[in-house]
Design a protein around this nucleic acid. Structure first.
Length: 565
RNA sequence: CGGGGCGUGGCGCAGCCUGGUAGCGCACCUGCUUUGGGAGCAGGGGGUCGGCAGUUCGAAUCUGCCCGCCCCGACCA
């Protein structure tokens, strides 16, 4: 019997001063987690119960999808990371053992699992496989933050699929989509599956599962027509700029002394920011200097730019603008540029624009792409609220927590680690891989963020630390504690896990703690209720109370609980 | 890594500017009373003031260096 009088649940009246995010404040206050250091968190018993419930849901759904659970070490030889090149990642913890041999603490397990598969898989008959684990990940985060939202050590469910070919990978990917959809539904989250950046790894496709909430570090672009993408990769049609100046026969120079920003030029010439061209001097590895142009009221999206360029790029330094671009910082523009110009699609077809003249204190007006300069076109701007999605609906932006991701790796790891098999014709081929992650603590934090109210946490039924909290009122020796214990036993027999508050505390204190902890249902047993033959039930979400007949309280409570979200 | 802030009993804070040997609320312990929305009275325990060095007769307080933590940004296979 879990009695609060002897359970390690240290609740706090006030949150720690350094806690900002709602989930951070509430998880600490409710006694579910404690901090050990920056980005290092301990799960206390009740918090770990929630964590394990999430784990259970994930395990059920992955097993249902045919995945096989296993366990890989966190401490690994550096060699395999050297082979894939990931040894160079800054976030990777590296350490030497007493003999001086180099090791790493794994941040994910692609190397290790692929190494094993390379050794054991030989024939097309051995494929496909989906393997997974729940294991700690270690990351030397530059900035841990927001309680358990971004930590240096955390438990991840990571699965890896191994297929004969691209079509097989697609099937494994689809299986994960189906499993993930069910997992996040069962966890009671509000979530979106969004198109995501494939990153510098150059994967074949990726999605992220995003749980919207104010503490989220990511932003997702959504529309009522079902469009859903991380703003890092989102594409949409912009609103046309209002009040474009008239087109001119030819571009003409205007003096803009000291006006180096969009705002200054816009004000100085009396044209809207959308009529300006914002030019970015960029230096790429392979192509050298290029100029990227977006509308003055738009923002350059560096991830989309990297995707369009097909390589990494960095902004040019001030001195490079003069040396490499033959221009002046603050006045650079595409007309007469000495380097290749990449223009954002939103600029295409516009006339009467204003751009830097590549001469100090001078801009050009009446500029027209196609006539005055011939760019390479690309979609490189960040979408904005109010844009139009491909299906024609309005885009809105929301902050969200990334709770899971799925990634088509292709042969990124199988080739360097030589994970190959012989196909039916006896030809050696690399295994096609996918990798799929879920951050358990992030699901927990997202559930808190999305369900909390003024009183505290309000758990979705499936991930609450306990299903029901039974509060026994009155002083020691009174009948209410006995009745509460009986109720507790009956709930347990019906398969509902309860927590019994048997502490010698005031009613107000117990109610406040119960609402802070946020179990979906609270049952209150007091002297008055017993005399009236009643038990009070409070549904945490909404805090609506009702009375149940004492004789049948457990059964009634169980039925009530089953209907909760 | 750049910018900002904080570090004083378990938690939240005051004291620091203007140096004189540490205080408040909550929590905790004992006793009595109280018991359906964070009780009352009485008594009590607990702090090398993040660390080191310096200035001074004397440092929580002034100076320097270091450490830790938080927030914003950069970063985040």
């Amino acid at each position: 019997m879990t009695r609060l009088s002897s359970y390690f649940l240290p609740t706090l009246k006030e949150p720690p001063a350094d806690a900002e995010a709602l989930s951070h404040r509430l998880l600490v206050r409710a006694g579910l987690v404690r901090q050990l250091g920056a980005g290092m968190w301990t799960f206390l018993p009740a918090g770990w119960r929630s964590h394990r419930r999430i784990e259970g849901i994930i395990r059920e759904e992955l097993d249902r999808a045919g995945a096989q659970e296993m366990l890989l070490p966190v401490l690994q030889p550096a060699e395999i990371w050297r082979r894939t090149g990931r040894i160079a990642i800054d976030e990777l913890f590296k350490l030497d053992d007493r003999k001086g041999a180099e090791h790493v603490l794994a941040m994910t397990h692609e190397e290790a699992i692929t190494w094993h598969v390379a050794r054991e898989i030989r024939s097309y008959r051995d494929l496909p496989q989906i393997l997974y684990q729940f294991q700690v990940k270690e990351r030397d985060e530059p900035r841990p933050r927001a309680g358990i939202l971004r930590t240096r050590e955390f438990v991840m469910k990571d699965s890896y699929s191994f297929d004969r070919d691209r079509e097989g990978l697609e099937r494994s990917y689809e299986r994960h989509i189906a499993a993930y959809d069910r997992i996040f539904d069962r966890c009671g989250l509000d979530w979106h599956r969004v198109a995501a950046d494939v990153g510098m790894m150059g994967g074949l496709g990726a999605h992220e599962y995003m749980a919207p909430c104010p503490a989220g570090e990511n932003e997702v672009a959504l529309s009522s027509a079902g469009y859903a993408a991380n703003v890092e990769v989102a594409t949409a049609t912009p609103r046309s700029p209002d009040g474009l100046p008239e087109a001119l026969e030819a571009a003409e120079a205007v003096q803009t002394p000291g006006q180096t920003t969009i705002e200054e030029v816009s004000r100085g010439l009396g044209v809207p920011p959308g009529a300006l061209l914002k030019a970015f001097p960029i230096v790429t590895e392979g192509r050298g200097p290029v100029m990227v142009v977006v509308r003055g009221d738009h923002r350059l999206n560096e991830i989309k730019l990297a995707g369009a360029l097909g390589e990494a790029a960095r902004p040019a330094q001030a001195d490079e603008v003069e040396a490499l671009f033959a221009s002046v910082p603050g006045f650079i523009g595409p007309v007469g540029a000495s380097v290749p110009v990449i223009a954002d699609e939103a600029v295409r077809g516009l006339r009467g624009l204003v751009a830097g003249a590549n001469v100090r204190d001078r801009h050009l007006r009446g500029v027209e792409p196609g006539r005055d300069f011939e760019p390479e076109w690309a979609d490189v701007r960040s979408v904005e609220a109010g844009d139009t999605c491909p299906a024609g609906a309005e885009i809105r932006l929301e902050p969200a927590i990334e709770v899971g991701n799925i990634f088509k790796l292709g042969t990124r790891y199988s080739e360097p680690l030589e994970a190959t098999f012989l196909d039916e014709s006896g030809t050696e081929r690399p295994v096609w891989m996918g990798s799929y992650g879920i951050g358990l603590a992030r699901i927990l934090a997202a559930a808190v963020e999305q369900g909390a109210d003024e009183q505290g946490i309000s758990w979705p039924r499936a991930v609450a630390p306990f299903d029901v909290e039974v509060v026994a009122l009155g002083k020691a020796g009174e009948e209410s504690l006995e009745v509460a214990e009986r109720l507790y036993e009956e709930l347990g027999a019906a398969g509902v896990e309860a927590l019994l508050d048997d502490r010698p505390r005031s009613a107000g204190e117990k109610f406040a703690d119960a609402e802070l902890l946020g179990c979906p249902l609270r049952l209150t047993v007091g002297r008055k209720g017993i005399e009236a033959g009643e038990v009070e039930a409070q549904v945490r979400r909404g805090r609506e109370r009702r009375t149940l007949p004492l004789d049948d309280a457990a059964q009634e409570a169980v039925s009530l609980w089953r209907e909760l979200p």
